[in-house]
Design a protein around this nucleic acid. Sequence first.
DNA 1: GTCTATACCGTGATAGAC
DNA 2: GTCTATCACGGTATAGAC
Lengths: 215, 215
Amino acid sequence: MANADTKVSRKDAILDAAEALFAEHGYDGVTLRAIAARAGVDVALANYHFGRKHELFEQTFQRRAEILNTWRLEALEACRREAAPAAPSVRDIIDAYLRPLMTGPHLKEPGWRNYYGMVAYVNSSVTWGGQLMTRSYDPAIGSFIDALKEALPEAGDEAIYWGYHCLSGALTLAFAQTGRLDHLSHGKVCSTDLEGGYLQMVDFITAGFERIGRP
Amino acid sequence: MANADTKVSRKDAILDAAEALFAEHGYDGVTLRAIAARAGVDVALANYHFGRKHELFEQTFQRRAEILNTWRLEALEACRREAAPAAPSVRDIIDAYLRPLMTGPHLKEPGWRNYYGMVAYVNSSVTWGGQLMTRSYDPAIGSFIDALKEALPEAGDEAIYWGYHCLSGALTLAFAQTGRLDHLSHGKVCSTDLEGGYLQMVDFITAGFERIGRP
DNA sequence: GTCTATACCGTGATAGAC
DNA sequence: GTCTATCACGGTATAGAC
């Protein structure tokens, strides 16, 4: 602990600043100087705590990934318990995947919103998407894939994985909060309204998976 | 025409190089020097032809956007003609949206693959997503939205636009070709196999839209 | 009109002194 | 933990060659 007077340690302040800037400009669009300035610390302190810029990026990304994985797996366990001894429905599985992330009080915190922007950037980045997403999220996502396979015994693997791909693409695009949906819909829909999007996406994605269950 | 001997003009060579590099590293991850080196031209030539880096990025993006819009609108027109005087089915509309982009001989060309990577980057970028996607694609996409509204008279606007959001997220994540699906599925699915993904996505997305048509 | 060589000046990540 | 120096690299303007 560097400083007992401040609410957040300087180390956390650096992570917070990095999160916000990486979300908005991507890895290469952000300088350590900008991060330091936003965090109110010296340039060299980021280097001292995290080493290379690359490391700082990964640690920023990892920090909340673990929390999200926990939330999701708890939701999956809960719906498994409720359905037992039967397998949970497709809808319950999709709900356990989306609800913890797209609804709840944490959405009011700018830190979480920033982090979501970072996830959107990482997931569709050629450089990071294949590696960092896999490392941070895929172990937990494997449990969801397993649950979906149980719920949809007739569905082929290809259909399951591409179905997951659709889910992932839709969710992370929502995380990007680009405002494009606002333009396209002439203001009828707001792309930062994740809770509104959640309600629509659960139905849409559930229907997609249910369809591939009966060939 | 600058040079009758070369197959592509130097101007096009710059666009090709820019396309490949922007797709892989995003806007900020690419230097004009790297683009010039890849194109085999002097650094200043990019500046001469396109002005600011910003302009080069937008022109690179726009170049193939117009072609894609044409392909899609022709496919939509064709399915409208075939269905007439009835309205085309949801499945036909989704097919007209996806098939021209996800299947066909152009997928063999590296230039198109690179461009798709760029679309993936732009669509989920906070900086570009809201503005550039809107400008380049949304006029044509408006026709698809209209067709979907006709095919799904019971669906609310919110559901239609969030449905489109799911479609867009899934498509552009496929464009990113990050290889993540390969890892997650332990090699059962290949994320660069757009034609395979097309077959799965048509079913999945169609089912999503059909679901929101009956509340 | 098309293109190259080069120079400018600000800014970058990072290391080493303190 | 902090300050400062280093040294390379960034976008872009300009002057002139073909």
